Computed example of a mutant assay.
Amino acid sequence: MKLDLNRLAKRGFIRRDANIGLRGITWTHSYWGDVATGLITADMTAPHAGWFRIQVGNLDQRITLVSEERHFGGWQWYFICPVKNRRASVLWKPNGATRFCSRQTWGRQVAYQSQFNDITNRAHAGKARIKSRLIADLDPEEWDFPPKPKWMRWETYKRYEALYDHYEEILDYGCIALVAKLGKNFF
């Protein structure tokens, strides 16, 4: 489970200069449905400090909030990690953990999925990402590499094309290595 302060603000769960009463929060998974439900409340009435409280099952945690001035004006709010005592926009609670803490506290327990992928899976994901950026409303199965969208600059398109070709080379090399390995074991 994770608490993303910016996402909570966008969805109206918390507001600057306001004390928010109890609000329900739910974590969902695209396959399993609802994972957990809880209650949150926050007090951000002070200009540069506040608190956030989360209650989920047996967990009842109060987290300090601080704001820092942005370079071009305005203020950015952060959680203070209860373990590392450093600012964080996102706090995580992996399975079996007793509280929410920053990513630096949990290490690889809360790493992004792409960090666990091998080179082949990263190449497949990279190709799919580039294709989705270029396709717009075209049929993805119709194109190996889609044509340049009208709104895109040629320099950007050429950069995507070179990166796509790089991913293709990685996948081709992987196929050649696999065939060589299978051939060696077969004969």
Rank of each mutant, 00 (worst) to 15 (best):
N85Y: 06
H48Q: 14
G74A: 05
G33I: 05
W92Q: 08
R108M: 14
W51H: 09
A42L: 01
L59W: 02
G107D: 10
Y78W: 14
Q55P: 00
A49N: 12
K84Q: 12
A36E: 03
K84L: 08
F100A: 07
K84I: 04
R62Q: 14
F79T: 07
T64K: 12
W27G: 00
P82R: 00
R23L: 06
T26D: 12
G74N: 04
I20D: 10
G33H: 02
R23T: 06
I63V: 14
Q61P: 02
F72L: 15
P94R: 01
P82I: 02
Q104F: 08
H48N: 14
T28G: 05
T28I: 14
W77Q: 08
F100C: 11
Q109S: 08
L59V: 15
G50L: 05
G33K: 01
R53H: 09
C81T: 13
V56A: 08
N95I: 11
N85M: 04
V90F: 04
W77L: 07
A88W: 05
S30E: 14
T41Q: 15
I54L: 06
V66T: 15
N58T: 14
A97K: 04
W77N: 11
V83F: 01
Q104I: 07
L22M: 13
V110E: 09
S89M: 05
T37R: 06
T64L: 10
V66Y: 12
V83R: 10
K84V: 04
G57T: 03
L59D: 12
W51M: 06
G38P: 14
L22H: 12
A46R: 08
L91N: 09
T105Q: 10
R53N: 13
G21T: 05
T45A: 05
I54A: 03
A88I: 07
P82Y: 02
R99M: 12
Q55H: 02
T45D: 09
Q104G: 08
S102R: 00
A97C: 07
I54T: 02
R99Y: 10
D17P: 03
I20M: 12
I80T: 13
I80R: 03
H48P: 01
R86W: 03
I63D: 11
G96M: 00
V35L: 15
E69T: 08
W51N: 13
G33N: 06
I25Y: 00
R103G: 09
A18L: 07
P82N: 02
R87N: 11
I40N: 04
E69L: 07
T26S: 12
V66E: 15
Y31L: 03
C81S: 12
T105Y: 15
F72S: 13
H71R: 11
H48F: 07
C101N: 13
W75E: 13
H71E: 13
T45Q: 13
D34W: 02
A49P: 00
L91P: 14
G33S: 07
H29F: 09
D17T: 08
S89Q: 06
T105K: 09
G21M: 05
R53P: 07
D60M: 06
G107A: 09
F79W: 03
A88C: 12
E69M: 10
Q104M: 10
S102H: 00
W92G: 06
Q76I: 09
